[in-house]
């Protein structure tokens, strides 16, 4: 902004040694942005289903392709990671879990849990859908 004072900036990312909790915070934001861009995938599927048989089979073919499935796996991982990160925030909202032990545990649970649950989800999908 014109005329705004040159204020000192607080230390930013590059000044800190990377830590797991910090990485989880960054990943929470990145998955949020990814999900933001991914919501149209769900809406496109709904719109195609509502539109015509051709549109529906086109979108189904797209999502059933290798690239489509890869995208959906990534999307589901982002969703689960963001959800687990959100649950972690709910715990923090109560004032609990800020100690070095719990917050490290939360970080590990978020990353480990998101990968494990994504695996379980797609095994279930594979078993159900074939």
């Amino acid at each position: 902004m014109a005329g705004a004072a040159e204020r000192p900036l607080s230390p930013h990312l590059q000044i800190y040694r990377p830590m797991l909790t910090m990485m989880m915070s960054i990943v929470h934001r990145i998955t949020g942005v990814a999900l933001y861009l991914g919501t149209p995938l769900l809406v496109a599927w709904l719109l195609a289903a509502a539109s015509s048989e051709q549109a529906f089979s086109f979108v189904n073919g797209l999502y059933g392709s290798w690239i489509g499935l890869l995208l959906l796996v990534g999307y589901s991982w982002a969703l689960i990671h963001h959800a687990l990160g959100g649950i972690r925030h709910f715990v923090w909202d109560t004032g609990a879990g800020f100690g070095p032990g719990p917050r490290e545990l939360f970080a590990k649970l978020t990353i480990g849990g998101s990968i494990a649950l994504t695996g379980v989800l797609w095994i279930v999908i594979w078993l159900v859908k074939g």
Partner: peptide
């Protein structure tokens, strides 16, 4: 926070339904 909680509850209900409906014939979906 309120929308986060709503998202969490609704996705737990909607996800199985969407998986069920996905990949079916259009009439079924």
């Amino acid at each position: 926070r309120v929308t986060a909680l709503a998202n969490l509850l609704l996705i737990l209900i909607a996800l199985p339904i969407v998986i069920w409906a996905a990949g079916q014939e259009q009439a079924q979906t």
